[in-house]
């Protein structure tokens, strides 16, 4: 592109200004420099140093010593790492369970003739609310003794639980909050997907005698599948990186469930910033990157079977 512009005969506009607006390919690089510098400084360089550190024993301060793959072998033998990976996987699965909810809600919102924007705003609010504030509110809702959830359950005759203090429930409790918080974004993407479905398809199928349910499964779902695929990929990536909800909702001096509820990024945080074990933390980050890459790759492979592009 850049060379094309440079080698094409000078246009009148540039000639009139005298100097030539695009004298060399260098200009092009200069134009993208701000973005490039940001990318290198904030992503590429940190990635390279993290990758390097993952093969070193790095103390809290000062240079590290090269230890080969020690961090990785220790990681693979660390039960706490596998548990964190299982927790992250469970959390991701729970968030994926929330996707059908998002599809149904998006379809319902499209049916609304008045105040559609109002509904979207309501569902979008959690997305733009501070996660820490959201987590604090949910901490109160989940409180075992005074929480709103247990109060409602008690009125229904169901025994309450210590949702965020009992390792049986923690990931599920946090997962519900995760679904609720990501609903807004998902509804926007799915809503846009729904609006791109030509209405005449519904009219034609109605003439052929298809009911609402049949239309949903035969028209809406296949034509929505590209949006659904995008939402699925984004959900898996963000869910595997979940940290803040555990950090705010479970961190308490006496939360004995925390030890069994750490996600992979929480473990990373603890290793890097609490225990000062940066090499080990770097290895965790690299493994997480690989997990996310594999998960995304697999999804792109699988999409051929279910995503419908017209």
């Amino acid at each position: 592109m850049i060379t094309d512009v440079a080698s094409s005969p000078p246009r009148r506009r540039t000639r009139r200004r005298g100097g030539g607006l695009l004298p060399s390919p260098g200009w092009g690089y200069l134009m993208i420099a701000p973005a490039l510098v940001g990318l290198v400084a904030l992503y590429v360089w940190p990635f390279l140093t993290t990758f390097g550190k993952s093969f070193m024993d790095v103390p809290a301060f000062g240079p590290g010593t090269f230890t080969g793959v020690d961090n990785y072998t220790e990681l693979l033998g660390d039960e706490r790492f596998w548990q964190a990976l299982r927790n992250s996987a469970l959390y991701t699965a729970i968030l994926l369970l929330g996707l059908p909810v998002a599809v149904v809600l998006a379809a319902l919102i499209e049916q609304v003739s008045r105040g559609r924007a109002g509904y979207r705003v309501l569902f979008f609010l959690p997305v733009v609310t501070l996660p820490v504030a959201v987590s604090m509110v949910w901490r109160f809702i989940y409180n075992g003794d005074f929480g709103l959830l247990n109060y409602v359950l008690s009125r229904l005759g169901v025994d309450g639980q210590y949702w965020v203090a009992d390792a049986t429930f923690t990931i599920w409790a946090v997962g519900v909050v995760g679904i609720w918080m990501s609903l807004g974004i998902n509804l926007i993407i799915l809503g846009a997907g729904l609006q791109s479905i030509p209405p005449d398809l519904y009219e034609a199928s109605a003439l052929d005698g298809a009911g609402r349910v049949r239309q949903f499964f035969r028209i809406t779902l296949p034509l929505l599948s590209p949006s659904l695929f995008l939402v699925t990929v984004l959900t898996v990536i963000s869910a595997l990186q979940m940290f803040d909800l555990i950090f705010v909702m479970l961190r308490s001096v006496n939360n004995t469930a925390l030890a069994d509820s750490k996600t992979i990024v929480y473990l990373f945080y603890e290793k890097a910033f609490v225990e000062f074990d940066q090499g080990y933390a770097a290895a965790i980050a690299i493994v997480l990157l690989m997990v996310i890459m594999v998960a995304t790759l697999v999804q792109f492979r699988l999409q051929r079977r279910w995503v419908f592009y017209d």
């Binding site: 409180n143 009992d166 001096v253 006496n254 469930a257």
Partner: peptide, 10 residues
């Protein structure tokens, strides 16, 4: 219990 003290600090 510890669970109670986790939800509501001492």
């Amino acid at each position: 219990t510890l669970k109670q003290l986790s939800d509501t600090e001492a």
